[in-house]
Amino acid sequence: MKWLLRAAVAAAIVGALWGLSYVLHEHVIEYVVRIAMLCGMNIILAVGLNLINGTTGQFSIGHAGFMAVGAYTTAYVCTQLAPEVAGVLGTGFLPDAVVFNVGLIAGAALAAATGVVVGVPSLRLKGDYLAIVTLGFGEIIRLLLTNAEFLGGATGFSGDNPTGLSPYTNVFWVFLWVVIVIVVIRNVTFSQTGRSLEAISEDEIAAEAMGTPTTRLKVVAFTLSAAAAGIAGGLFAHLQGSVRPDDFKFDRSIDMIVMIIVGGLGSITGAVIGGIFVGVTLELMRDLSEYRLVLYSLLLVIIMLVRPQGVLGKRELSFSRLFPKKAAKPARAAGDEKP
């Protein structure tokens, strides 16, 4: 019975996303829809990065590199695959869906594989050292792409069509992947593995003394986080129409860190809020022209002064918290965190 219920919930979510996608694309101006999709990608990036930077407490500052791997892989796989699939399935929604999702999964897989390659040697390091390694990795990826002729070098990769990569990315796919990423990361966070990750974040030596395989768990978290960044990269590639090495500069990694710090390190819902914050703030301040960047930085400073732990701190927003049931109250009150 349980799986039947779950299937029903999943179907309901897909249906709701389908409806949302239809309404947004048909009735709302493209500008708002575009920003919404960019916010969705930010959410995927932030929730993914939060698993390693927030929950596990290992500071990665090179996640733009994984996003780049995902973006280029998805773009490349889709351009290679599209004619083949079109030969079998023709054109329309189904072949596009197949091509795009195969591309996205390939992007996530390669990003994850890169995560393992980077993670295994570097996650034995602690603290600042890991940050430097990931920083270096992000730059290496970007420079490799800049010099990769078959991926377009500095010009970037946009397929053979002068109008760029096929615009597969729409609200439905973005937010379907948002839901998938959040569910997976949430399940990991609130599982035994998640508790061990938190233990590593609290005190790595103590965790190790208790028999927690710290390096292995860190690599697992890092890999999942890289896969999420890869998905976001693939979605980004087919929204933007091209991918360039310069789309994945160090600034992009910093943006991701801003998202999780603003939202609250270690909180999934916080990461969602942070992703949306970074996605909309600069666009909302368009009327200030050149001063918007000044104000944006000022806003970040103010947030850090007023709430150094981020908007949510380590807490999660949940429906049961917003609409508390009488019965659940005592248990929850006891579980409320102490600052």
Binding site: G241, D246, D247
Partner: peptide, 10 residues
């Protein structure tokens, strides 16, 4: 480039 596309859409 992302902002360029945002700006033109806007």
């Amino acid at each position: 480039a992302t902002e360029a596309a945002n700006a033109v859409t806007r």
